[in-house]
Design a protein around this nucleic acid. Structure first.
Lengths: 247, 247
DNA sequence: CAGTGGTCTAGACCACTGG
DNA sequence: CAGTGGTCTAGACCACTGG
């Protein structure tokens, strides 16, 4: 290829990059309902022709919409409009999904007794190397994976916890079996990029956005009974937070 | 250009895309402290040579790190390591920034009396077309813009509100002038892509990630006294949430 | 004026899938 | 086997800035 020749476009829109203009146009079509959830978008090569751009530019426009959670791509099938995000109230995954009339899922990935690393020990307020129960679960709604949840519990507080039922609400399980009642929770939330492993587990693209919720749960007497790191698919979830204001 | 010729790389790493491999390597250098905040990264054209890739691929690696909030770019100066994210406790911007030993800022963008749109009316629990005070402020820490905050108040609850001091904590102002005390807040949080306007106001890149916090604040007698839409720079902020659990 | 990142081209080859 | 998105090349021109 030699010199880049600008095609005879109008000179008016010189400021707005082509990929943003195309993204805008497709976004409009989705917002207006011309395209419904799971409807296919035009193939990338068609978008190139329609908008008179190269494929890299058309792809860039789609990547913008993908990062907004408006579309999803399948390498062999095409590009499609996403379903609306799932609303989750903070702190009760199963309950929230059920309320929305969907089927909550909790697939156990692993569970084991560990000796606490310094980070986990500090979070739980126990001695380093003390025994903790750790488990990882993939949380889903109607079979769609939404979050990967890794939780830690001091073993002395909930002895034999891992032998129980780990397929539902763990708070309910803990209250029922050990009489331990949850009183307060602290969480830090940030947007991260999903690494290759996480992306694969969540069925998302590597380097796409995730919501990392690092949280601690306390009993009425102020003891930390749970330390958790939850990673949500940022494109599929919105979080609802209710809170009393302590002034 | 004619046929693409693969250079004599090792065949081992055929699976991992080049842009992820390069991103990984740079991420490591930042995490390990070889590169400090505000240190420059190598120019893109140097990365091309060092890693034997085209510029598009080198740029893609940097874009991954940028979306993680690890680096920032300046079109004329280069690419640099970001400072750590600012931690914000939900619901008290000024207070949180001060606690971190930094200077909170609230630059008034506009303020006016409006008649409530259906959306605002529903959120505030008032009649459509009732008068509301609306204002928009750019919140910053040590001069760095972190959030754009748009808030709405029922005019009958806080008459003359806009004539007061709008440069600090609005909750404090409202309590002091009108004796209205905040009791409870509800928020919905989601990750969005910043549109051109928002990105410009926040000094971020178009289509980069933002955190949209849509929230309502209630008085002790259950009246909604504030409806707000706050957009944070997702790459610069982490949110802290404290909450009693109501079981 | 040299150097920087931002946008864009016109292709290439790949793996994978579904008819 | 046709069609899809995923990765990548080897360039181009641009605006802008700081010495």
């Amino acid at each position: 290829m030699s010199t880049v020749e600008r095609s005879g476009e109008t000179r008016a829109d010189r400021k707005e990059p082509a990929y943003l203009r195309i993204a805008e146009e497709l976004r409009e079509q989705i917002a207006s309902g011309q395209l419904d959830p799971n409807d296919p978008l035009p193939p990338e090569r068609d978008l190139c022709v329609d908008h008179n751009v190269s494929r890299m530019t058309a792809r860039r426009a789609l990547t913008v919409l993908e990062s907004e959670g408006l579309i999803y791509r399948s390498a062999t099938r095409g590009t499609f409009v996403s379903e609306p995000r799932v609303q989750l109230r903070l702190g009760s995954f199963s309950q929230e999904i059920s309320r929305a009339g969907k089927q909550p899922g909790a697939q156990l990935i692993w569970s084991e007794t560990q000796s606490a690393t310094t980070g986990v020990a500090r979070a739980l307020g126990i001695a380093t190397d003390a025994d903790v129960y750790a488990l990882q679960r993939l949380r889903s709604s109607n079979g769609e994976p939404l979050a990967l949840e890794t939780t830690y519990y001091p073993s002395d507080l909930v002895p034999g916890f891992l032998d129980g039922d780990l397929s539902g609400s763990l708070w309910t399980e803990i209250r029922g079996r050990f009489g331990v009642v949850v009183a307060r929770t602290t969480a830090r939330l940030e947007v991260i990029a999903l690494d290759t492993t996480l992306a694969e587990q969540l069925g998302a693209r590597p380097a796409s956005s995730g919501l990392l919720l690092t949280r601690r749960t306390f009993t009425a007497d102020g003891r930390c009974m749970e330390y958790a790191q939850d990673v949500y698919r940022a494109d599929r979830v919105s979080l609802v937070i209710d809170r009393a204001v302590d002034e």
